[in-house]
Design a protein around this nucleic acid. Sequence first.
DNA 1: GATGAATGAGAGTTCATTCAT
DNA 2: TATGAATGAACTCTCATTCAT
Lengths: 207, 207, 207, 207
Amino acid sequence: MVNKIKKRTQKKIWDSAIEEFSTYGFGGARVDRIAQQAGVNKALFFYYFSSKENLYQLIIKDAVKGLIQKIQNVLEQAKTPERFYEIMPEAFIRYFSQKQYLPRMILLELVQNPDSITSLIRDIFASTPNPPPEDVKSLLAQWSREGKITESDPVQFIMNIIPVSLFWLIGSPMVESVLDVKIEINEAFIQKRIQSVTNLLKRGMLK
Amino acid sequence: MVNKIKKRTQKKIWDSAIEEFSTYGFGGARVDRIAQQAGVNKALFFYYFSSKENLYQLIIKDAVKGLIQKIQNVLEQAKTPERFYEIMPEAFIRYFSQKQYLPRMILLELVQNPDSITSLIRDIFASTPNPPPEDVKSLLAQWSREGKITESDPVQFIMNIIPVSLFWLIGSPMVESVLDVKIEINEAFIQKRIQSVTNLLKRGMLK
Amino acid sequence: MVNKIKKRTQKKIWDSAIEEFSTYGFGGARVDRIAQQAGVNKALFFYYFSSKENLYQLIIKDAVKGLIQKIQNVLEQAKTPERFYEIMPEAFIRYFSQKQYLPRMILLELVQNPDSITSLIRDIFASTPNPPPEDVKSLLAQWSREGKITESDPVQFIMNIIPVSLFWLIGSPMVESVLDVKIEINEAFIQKRIQSVTNLLKRGMLK
Amino acid sequence: MVNKIKKRTQKKIWDSAIEEFSTYGFGGARVDRIAQQAGVNKALFFYYFSSKENLYQLIIKDAVKGLIQKIQNVLEQAKTPERFYEIMPEAFIRYFSQKQYLPRMILLELVQNPDSITSLIRDIFASTPNPPPEDVKSLLAQWSREGKITESDPVQFIMNIIPVSLFWLIGSPMVESVLDVKIEINEAFIQKRIQSVTNLLKRGMLK
DNA sequence: GATGAATGAGAGTTCATTCAT
DNA sequence: TATGAATGAACTCTCATTCAT
């Protein structure tokens, strides 16, 4: 989707839209602001993308696709739980720190329209050669059978590992005020975060 | 008598507003829908709460206050890290499963208006006798000095423990589709979740 | 009309309404503000006066009646132009400085609803034993015939004498800023004003 | 071309707004009516003028500016009191008969918001090279010193001359019903009015 | 008489979208 | 491709009025 957009103006609108949608959600986003931010006339927005709803769907789909791809990348590389607990936090935390709009968009959509994201993921899986569900479940079953991991329930497993890699950025303002500190999201912080999550998972979820 | 009717109507509007705001965010929420949901005339909304913005702020403030109080409750009871890792997940997961709008509202506000939630928390702390920041930081420093916990950085510490207790509910639709399972949020699930988080934290963050 | 209103509460509403209507006109007046100013519940306004429109009409009618009566008083006393130019400014300027709402209400109604005031005056005349029109016209014709006054056209005559007695109060803020002075409406000012108008009319409109 | 169309539509809204505001005042004016009168969509009103309040202020400012300019024109030409009493009524009465909305708007604002008009005039003077206040006061002082005029107090002077040139139009419905005549505002009437005021002032305020 | 609660109709304003150029 | 003008529908909010007590 993304690489199909070559035109400079179109790209500017696309980027502004991501910024707007990931901040205000679909209902709160304003086409006016997107156009202004992109430095173009509002009518161009509709010329290129037909409607607000349409562009939103394109962006969400693109975001979810990127995320799924990331998950599959990790799964392909991680053949042991040790490696998994090393690779996954590194991959996710770096990815989200570069594309900060991604966790924001997905969270907003999860809160505001959970069904849409569910069916979207299922659609993507339907046209994927080796869809994650079976992959993940069988991998975890195997690790569990081999006595390598503490949590055998795949649901609990994921609910333990994803949030710590995903939520930290969005939650940081709250952590800042609860601890009365200032958090700078720089390379040093990223490394510390990766280290901390890896530690937690290795000690906490490895037998 | 009259008073009770007033309060009952006001309460209905308040509850409908929570539902609406926690689903659509401030920008996407519709006063019309709130009034209809509450079964009252739209003008009553303004009669009682002056404006959409005003009611939103009241609700957010109330939500954050509730959350802070929960945190303080936990801190008061947990005098050792062991107890903390037992009490905290239990308290949070149960609380959020009863007030599902709470994590949704706070997440939306964190994404859409992080500064507001920051200053709101600081305001609340300013009028609190024993504000958490010092409490939490000194408690963690002590536990760290005594060699009881693995993560000495309070920021990383919180970023490890809060997400797993908070994010699971919102993320569940995504987990459902990624694993192709159906998740029922019932007592059995709650207990499993509490158990899993407690395990993770005890093994992962206790020396 | 006025003396029929005995009830204290009713009187308070009446007075507040005069204040409100004479400031904002009918369209801009707010029942809420009238009730609040009167220190009573809004519903009482309707209990006593049925509707905003109705009370407005009552007040306008009362105001115009008062004004007409004043004109008739003056006409009865002034049997020569000299006396007229002495009595009229004195009577009008004092009357309006005591009932400042009166010129305001009448001006607003003249601007916003000239036809209504016209037919209102005609209605009042219809039930008056000795209505002014003939009185005034015959008086002026007589004075003109006797060569006592310079302006024989009754229309121009009135347009010369009424405004200087009526407009000064409303226009004073404008005079203040155009001349960069502060005008205090006190007894000394009133006397100066009466003197100035009397002079103007005597010199200007007496042969 | 486009520019002309834009200006034409904007002008239509502007003119309709003047009509509406000068009839109903700010509070009673309806944006709906203005748009309909201009033959455009209501939203265009806001597209061009942001808000009802904003347009009202623009119009008031424009009206007051026009009035001030008229005053300055008269002052520049009138170097003796004789000339002044000839030029001023002619200029004012013609001006107001062409722009009938002007006295209406200014009167409404004087009644409903006297402070605003005061500060508006002061603002205009602040950015005027030769502001009237000193001009007028020194001119009158000079004429008074030279024994040419009867009224030496500038406040009374203005309160004698402005109302007779300004109030006649608004007051005409009342004059009509009080005298039971019909007044046609045509060239003949205008000339009669100018003549009458000039007479009044020359005889009444010239020594 | 007096009040707080409640309402329908409408007011000002916003917003996604379309049109004309 | 790009834009300013224009619009209908919807949105937040207001206001005169009524209801129940």
